[in-house]
C-alpha cells in the first residue's frame, strides 16, 4: 500500500514581492522557494503512518510545477520519503495528476490543507473529485485503527473524527506533529533516491489570463511605544485618543 503526498513549492514567508515591468508577473529572482509548510505537515504525517503500519509500502512525493520544484521534493526525500515524481509544468492540472496517482497505485493520498502563497486549496479537492475518493479536509491527526484510517480535525472548537476506508484523500493541518528536519544524513541519502522528472503533455492554455498584478497599498508607518506593558498601553491609548482621534 503506497501513500502519495502532493507537494508544492511556495515563496518563503519573508520574501519581499517585486513585480516585473510587465505588471502582470512577479520577479522571481529574489525569491527563496520553500516546501509549502502544509505539504511538509502532510509528509510528516505520512512518515508517521508508515512507521506505525508495516503494510505501508512506499511514500511517494508527487508535484506538478516548474523545474525548481525539485528542491522541495529533495527536502521531502531528505525527511524520509522513498521516491518522488515531478511533472514539469507551469501550472497544475488535476487531470494529469489524477492519472499519475492511479499509476502509482496509491491507497492514500495526502496533501497540505492549503498553499501559503495564494492560499488556494483547490488541487487536492479537485483530485479527490476526479478520482472519486473519500475526502477529509484539514486533518490535524491521522492514525490507524484496525486497518482503517482515523482522520481527526478541529472545527469551531470541537473535534471531529472520521473513519476512512481506503482509498481516500486527506489534506493536513499541523496538529501535534512537528515536521522532522532534513538531517545531513537524510540529505545525503536523498541524493541516491529516485526522482523522476517527466513532462506534462497537457495544454498550457487553461483559459485564464492574468491581466494585471498590483502590490497591496503600503501600510502606514509603524510606531512602537517603549516602556513596560502598562506604560506602553497607556501611551497607546493616549495616541489613539489624541493623535488618531479614534477613541
Amino acid at each position: 500500500m503506497n501513500i502519495v503526498v502532493i507537494v508544492s513549492q511556495t515563496p518563503d514567508t519573508t520574501t519581499k514581492v517585486v513585480l516585473n515591468s510587465d505588471k502582470k508577473s512577479i520577479d522571481e529572482s529574489g525569491i527563496t522557494w520553500i516546501l509549502n509548510p502544509y505539504a511538509e505537515f502532510a509528509i510528516e504525517k505520512a512518515l508517521k503512518l508508515k512507521e506505525a503500519n508495516p503494510q505501508v509500502g512506499e511514500i511517494i512525493l508527487l508535484a506538478m510545477g516548474p523545474e525548481r520544484t525539485v528542491e522541495a521534493l529533495r527536502q521531502g526525500l531528505a525527511m524520509g520519503a522513498d521516491r518522488a515524481v515531478l511533472i514539469k509544468s507551469n501550472f497544475v492540472n488535476t487531470e494529469v495528476l489524477a492519472a499519475k496517482v492511479k499509476e502509482l497505485d496509491a491507497k492514500l493520498v495526502l496533501g497540505g490543507k492549503k498553499s501559503i502563497d495564494t492560499e488556494s486549496a483547490n488541487t487536492e479537492a479537485g483530485l479527490a473529485a476526479r478520482l472519486d475518493l473519500a475526502f477529509v479536509h484539514c486533518a490535524n491527526k491521522l492514525s490507524w485503527e484496525g486497518g482503517k484510517l482515523i482522520a481527526s480535525r478541529e472545527i469551531s472548537g470541537e473535534n471531529q473524527s472520521f473513519v476512512l476506508t481506503l482509498p481516500a484523500l486527506v489534506t493536513c493541518d499541523k496538529g501535534e506533529d512537528e515536521p522532522r528536519y532534513a538531517s545531513i544524513m537524510g540529505i545525503m541519502k536523498a541524493k541516491k533516491k529516485e526522482l523522476d522528472e517527466i513532462y506534462s503533455s497537457a495544454q498550457d492554455d487553461i483559459g485564464i489570463e492574468i491581466v494585471e498584478a498590483r502590490l497591496p497599498a503600503l501600510r502606514g508607518s509603524v510606531k512602537i511605544f517603549d516602556g513596560s506593558p502598562a506604560e506602553a498601553a497607556e501611551k497607546l491609548l493616549k495616541a489613539l485618543r489624541e493623535e488618531a482621534k479614534v477613541l
Binding site: A182, I187, M188
Partner: peptide
Amino acid sequence: SSEENLILNSTKDF
C-alpha cells in the same frame, strides 16, 4: 548545489 542549498535551509530551520 541543490544539496548545499538544502543543508543551508535545514540548518536555518534548526
